[in-house]
Design a protein around this nucleic acid. Structure first.
Lengths: 334, 334
DNA sequence: GTGTTTTGTTTAAACGTTTAAACATGCTAT
DNA sequence: ATAGCATGTTTAAACGTTTAAACAAAACAC
């Protein structure tokens, strides 16, 4: 991006009066003990002066390394995916790696395509947020020992590499905190689904309640996905009906919290702040609410970084052991 | 990703009893008129059976095409960037292109690095959301006629390729709409900055006011970046002081809207809905507010798609003319 | 039946690196 | 003097494609 004609090893060699091989050695810092210092300096100087940029294709063809990894997400436009992507990008940069991205829209066929295209493009590794039913695809990677790691989700029946959030602890910790705050009549608003994430979150809530001797009868409102807004409204009003002295509400994810807050504000449900509100997931809009909301923050940084680091050591061939991490997030108490 | 050993042209050739060249021709659909149909079919069948995947490096080395473009954003974790990225990803997929992403954090040195690394990685083109003071870098690209296009921002002093949102119309249209709704005492909350975006947004507001014979004295509250939350609060209360009959508030961007809504809700400023609220930028949390908020929606799809299409035609060498588009968004009236 | 064109296929160089192996020279030890 | 070693550099093959050019055989023209 500066010289008219692409400068290559040959040009440096000619200019420095050495062979192409020597230039390559010097520029890659190989055989340092063998090469005369002055020669090395001279070569480096020339390379710099000519603004040499190695040809990625030629290099890759020989080394079979692209210094690029593929990142397969559910949907890049989704803040969760985007944040994760950013963290991964930054971590990869430390290793001088680039990142090719793609979204699956939760479709296994798209995931398969992306894996195909990316491995084809010779990425050195893959970080995958897997869709449902994509086990077969991952099995393939696993079997040929292609460097990969799953994030955010895993398949409990398979020995895959993964780094995920502990969804159970998300609600377990928040509920514990509510109980610690002397709340007894807690309502839990979640989504009606078999998705592992939410099953775990429900389990976390129930477990914390049981441990505290609170029975969970009628406390859990599961909202159908298609009608979140009205669902949340109905859910909260139903809770209020069953428990007139409701003193806490826990929302299983940010979108539910949003509709929950909307309903609460609109119906002036909580002007005396007798109901403590907690949430899973971080969200900007919590600030809108009059009182601070304590929430469970997913360990995104840790997740992204661990995934990258594992992948890197796998690629560099350092340690070939597996990784299976379930990371706990933290309670942001406010 | 399925055979143990990577299958290459040579293997197909052997299996099909032809030369490597012929295989290459067939697989690339070249010399179709010359090659015997049966031979072609046979070769294709073998390629399929062996699950042949061309080696990206070797191919690139010869063709100098990577079928990859670089996307340089401000911050992938920012929903605006992420949405744009997703749109661009989708549009590029239609052309069978992949995308390498990077964030600048609004730093010109990072932008330079990314341009370096990406062009080095032999991307076929670049889509750049430029930071301030990155003109020099873009000049370089422009001069060597490297396929690129700027998005969201441009430099009015340079003949660069760009596709951007019309920031002026964002506030112009919303203000016009307010006036159409018979609002007369309009307050405008914006950020104190010289950034082109916001200068334009201010200009749009002022122009719409002037056209309607409304004087803008004291109507514009410019908030310093470091203290948005308190700034917005002070701004609104000051407006209320100067205009006790304030009947509309326009926010120049989503974060301001958020703090604005917080203040309004907290101070029960707008229970009778005598103040109409409008905003620039789409945001999920608008739904929290009791009354629907009309907003200006940036033409993200159009922006991303036009940028990609231009780049593609540039890369394919079709039409070498420039592009300089200022796209109008739409008012989402609610 | 010879020259030309058409049809079908192959040869071989090239793309820009990396790297094992060879080479050359000087030094050391005997 | 000479083998052996250390130091410094070069030669040349290889990576897996693409593609211009050459070649061969068949079909056509006259």
């Amino acid at each position: 991006m500066s010289e008219r004609k692409k400068v290559q090893l040959k040009d440096i060699a000619k200019e420095a009066n050495v062979s192409v091989a020597l230039v390559s050695y010097v520029l890659n810092g190989q055989h340092q003990n063998r090469i005369k210092k002055e020669t090395a300096e001279r070569i480096k100087a020339v390379a710099k002066r000519l603004n040499y940029r190695p040809n990625h294709f030629a290099k890759g063809l020989k080394t079979q390394k692209s210094h690029t990894i593929g990142l397969i997400l559910a949907d890049l436009a989704n803040p969760f995916s985007a944040q994760l992507a950013r963290i991964i990008e930054d971590e990869l940069k430390k290793y001088n790696y680039n990142v090719l991205m793609g979204s699956t829209d939760e479709r296994e066929d798209k995931l398969k395509d992306l894996v195909d295209v990316f491995t084809n493009q010779q990425v050195d590794g893959l970080i995958i947020l897997p869709t449902e039913n994509s086990e077969k695809e991952i099995v393939q990677l696993h079997e040929v020992d292609f460097p990969y790691v799953l994030i955010d989700r895993y398949f409990s029946d398979y020995p895959f590499n993964f780094v995920v959030n502990d969804n159970h602890s998300s609600t377990y910790l928040t509920t514990k905190q509510l109980i610690k705050n002397k709340r007894k009549k807690i309502g839990f608003i979640t989504i009606e689904t078999d998705l592992f994430h939410f099953v775990e979150r429900k389990r976390g809530f129930v477990e914390a309640c049981i441990e505290a001797g609170i029975d969970t009868e009628n406390r859990i409102q599961e909202i159908r996905f298609g009608q979140l807004e009205t669902g949340v409204a109905v859910g909260i009003s139903r809770l209020k009906q069953v428990f007139p002295d409701l003193d806490a509400l826990l929302f299983a994810t940010d979108i539910l919290t949003m509709y929950g807050l909307k309903y609460i504000i609109q119906h002036k449900l909580n002007i005396t702040n007798d109901i403590e509100i907690m949430a899973v997931d971080e969200a900007k809009f919590y600030d809108i609410y009059s009182t601070p909301i304590t929430y469970y923050k997913q360990p995104l940084e840790e997740m992204g970084q661990k995934a990258v680091r594992f992948l890197m050591s796998k690629i560099e061939g350092n340690n070939p052991d597996a990784i299976q991490e379930v990371l706990k997030g933290q309670l942001v108490i406010r």
